[in-house]
Nucleic acid binder design. Structure first.
Lengths: 114, 114
DNA sequence: ATTGCAATATAGATGACCGATATATGTCTT
DNA sequence: AAGACATATATCGGTCATCTATATTGCAAT
């Protein structure tokens, strides 16, 4: 199924942080991982990801380092910071509140409205 | 809790259609209803709603009629059409797919990755 | 060496939503 | 009955996240 891209607005940052919470990754890898784990729902574009990574880094949410050992190609790995973990928690709380609000509107309206 | 507005992008149309599936409503009423049913998560602005209603009407998803009987103030009621109901179904399917994809990324990543 | 993919990068366009503002009408207060 | 206030609809300019398109570099395979 193709998802209207406007639906996904705003959740990208959260998903990136969540990926990095599991392990350090480089940009291209995040795109692949997201696509795999979401079963092709999220097809994040490079043009979206890299500016986002730079913004997150400048805000101190993630840090980057170059991978020299055993790397095939020059890669820039990213690691989540303490602030990043804090931000992730906030975003997840927002996400939960938001989805349950939507589901409440979608679901509970035809009967027994108080 | 205050929700980052960018998170809500794209779901507004779906929620409006869902409201109208329950009963005919006028603009201002939708704002109130949404706010009530979502427990203040959705505070839809008039500047957002009215252009959206006009777009939906021009696309044949909803129809409007003026309320003359027993109305206190001039009101424009909206009614969902067959096409609108079809669109709502599609949007809801998208919503379900999207949220489960996000939850999958959020939840199932640290253990037992297949 | 040259084609091709991996990987990073940036600029311009798009589209949804908000803030500000406008206007008209009905209600409440004094 | 006058003024303040809430209801109700409407439009415009701006913001922000994301996409499209494009560019560049390094390594691999032929």
């Amino acid at each position: 199924m193709k998802i209207d891209k406007s639906l996904t607005t705003g959740s990208t940052t959260m998903l990136i942080l969540r990926l990095l919470k599991s392990k350090d990754m480089y940009g291209y890898q995040m795109i692949d991982e997201l696509e795999k784990r979401s079963e092709n729902i999220f097809t994040l574009k490079a043009g979206t990801l890299y500016p986002l990574l730079h913004t997150l880094e400048s805000r101190g949410m993630i840090e980057s380092y170059d991978a020299k050992i055993d790397s095939v190609r020059p890669r820039k790995y990213y690691r989540i910071t303490q602030n990043g973990k804090k931000l992730l928690k906030e975003k997840q709380a927002e996400w939960t509140a938001y989805t349950s609000a939507v589901n409440q509107v979608l679901g509970g309206m035809d009967y027994a409205i108080v």
